[in-house]
Simulated scan of single mutants.
Amino acid sequence: MLPLALVLVVAVRHWSVLVEGFGHLRRAEWPWLLAAALATCLTWVAAAVTRQGAVMERLPARRLLATQFAAGAANHLLPTGLGASAVNLRFMTVCGVPLARSSAALALYLLAESIARVGLLMGLLIAFPGALRMGGLLPAGAIGPLLLTAGLILCVAAAALLLVRRLRTAVFSFVRTALGEARSVHTRPARALALWGGSLAFPLLQAAGLTAVGQALQLPVPPMHMAVAYLAATAAVAVVPTPGGIGSVEAALIVALVAAGGPVAVATAVVLAYRIITVWLPLLPGALTLGALVRLKVI
């Protein structure tokens, strides 16, 4: 709840900017907004392809796609993607995949998606070195505390592994299972292609959606720079545990688009419209789909 409270405080302090951003939404070009909606729909297809690529068993395609749509609604109940992970874990176990291997496939999916996202960001930063004014992304003196916090978390995790024998045994067992699942998947070219192709397509489609919204609102930032801003912002907020990234994603995207050269009010309008399309419009139908899948015992 703390990140959400901090976001609320920031929103109240910058209320005039939010109001001005909402005012810009009236002049949005609808064809570009429809393109953003299409890109959002294709992200569920990319997620389904990646999920299939992470497991050896063949999963029912239609149910898998419906599960990815429903997982988006579940993602707003728990922080840091835990809702979507729980839904997919349940789906794979119902499909007959053992729990240990389902967990390993879930970890492989998250790892591949993270590698693809960071790899795309690094590649685009090399290709477009002036896309972001990096000095504006973090306040002065913020890097040190962030590194210190990350170091403390790693130290606590390492101490827990060393001191708690049962935890150490469980972690080592899981790692062995995960490595075995990864080796099996990569012996099947079709599975490996689905895993890595879907992992690359997912963030690209998300960035394409933000770029389309930027074009709809005439944000004066080159499309590739908007894509860099999106990847940088989402990579940065991955460690902020807000449900569905609500608040943290909006703040990071606005900062990144401003760092890419966009005016604050227009950048705010772009982010608001993008999150309406990708989060709030699919939320109710996603929740209804989730309930239906539970009643039908698909998950």
Results as ranks from 00 to 15, higher is better:
residue 71 A to P: 09
residue 134 M to Y: 02
residue 220 P to T: 03
residue 241 P to W: 11
residue 13 R to A: 13
residue 150 A to V: 11
residue 120 L to S: 02
residue 197 G to R: 05
residue 6 L to Q: 11
residue 163 L to I: 13
residue 279 V to M: 11
residue 216 A to T: 02
residue 107 A to F: 12
residue 183 R to D: 14
residue 75 N to G: 05
residue 8 L to T: 09
residue 33 L to E: 05
residue 21 G to C: 09
residue 142 A to C: 11
residue 275 R to K: 06
residue 17 V to I: 07
residue 123 G to V: 08
residue 16 S to F: 09
residue 183 R to C: 11
residue 113 E to D: 15
residue 28 A to S: 02
residue 219 L to F: 02
residue 74 A to C: 06
residue 84 A to Y: 05
residue 196 W to A: 08
residue 264 V to W: 13
residue 241 P to L: 14
residue 78 L to F: 00
residue 241 P to F: 12
residue 93 T to F: 03
residue 228 V to Q: 03
residue 188 R to P: 05
residue 296 L to T: 07
residue 84 A to W: 01
residue 141 G to R: 12
residue 102 S to T: 01
residue 47 A to F: 08
residue 234 T to D: 02
residue 239 V to N: 12
residue 226 M to Y: 02
residue 254 I to C: 09
residue 146 L to R: 13
residue 110 L to K: 08
residue 269 A to I: 02
residue 152 L to R: 14
residue 230 Y to T: 01
residue 292 A to D: 10
residue 112 A to G: 05
residue 44 W to L: 11
residue 178 A to I: 00
residue 151 G to M: 13
residue 218 Q to L: 02
residue 178 A to D: 03
residue 233 A to Q: 07
residue 141 G to K: 12
residue 251 A to R: 07
residue 243 P to D: 07
residue 174 F to I: 03
residue 69 F to L: 12
residue 252 A to Y: 07
residue 205 L to Y: 10
residue 150 A to N: 10
residue 77 L to D: 01
residue 139 P to S: 14
